[in-house]
């Protein structure tokens, strides 16, 4: 049977009250499940302990793990069903993901760098403009202050005298 594989990403949460020495067992279980459904795991990442935005089952913390893999589309439902049975996985999410080839990655990196450069250039320009404007303002102020201060002072003094 020739089945086309789709790229998926699975993120799951191990509840925060499970001691850390039991984590390898849970990770192994998940990996076993994946191998059972003939998934080809491409990346595996530990996102670490994180505080929930809201309590789940009265828990406030959890350990996040992310996997990327290729799997036959017909097996996703089965995988979900079996994941639901695992009481050591608090929550999980399987999503389709665009497969990024290395060439695309390189190109995207280039684009990001370019954007960053232009941003820096813009900021520098703005700062330079600001400095110029400040200098001009200061000069203007100085001129005004030197010429007008005496006049204004005179006026004020006259008023007070009257």
């Amino acid at each position: 049977m020739n089945t086309e594989l789709t790229h998926y990403e699975l993120t799951y949460i191990i509840p925060g009250n499970v001691p850390e020495d039991e984590h390898p067992k849970i990770l192994e279980k998940v990996n076993e499940l994946l191998t059972k459904f003939e998934a080809e795991v491409t990346s595996n990442e530990d996102l670490g302990r994180r505080k929930f935005a809201y309590p789940i089952n009265h828990l406030r913390h959890g350990f996040y793990h992310t996997l990327e893999f290729d799997l036959a589309a017909s097996n996703v439902k089965k995988l979900e069903d079996e994941m639901k049975l695992d009481s050591n996985v608090l929550r999980f999410l399987i999503i389709k993901k665009r497969l990024v080839t290395e060439e695309e990655k390189k190109e995207e990196k280039k684009v990001i760098e370019k954007i960053a450069k232009t941003k820096i250039a813009k900021v520098e320009k703005k700062e330079a403009d600001k400095e110029k404007a400040d200098k001009q303002q200061k000069e203007d102020k100085k001129k005004i202050s030197l010429e007008d201060l005496d006049k204004k002072l005179d006026e004020l003094l006259d008023e007070e005298v009257i």
């Binding site: 949460i13 935005a53 809201y54 929550r91 999410l93």
Partner: peptide, 11 residues
């Protein structure tokens, strides 16, 4: 919405 489900962001 996905981030909310995974408790990364509040509902």
């Amino acid at each position: 919405k996905r981030a909310r489900f995974m408790a990364l962001l509040p509902y």
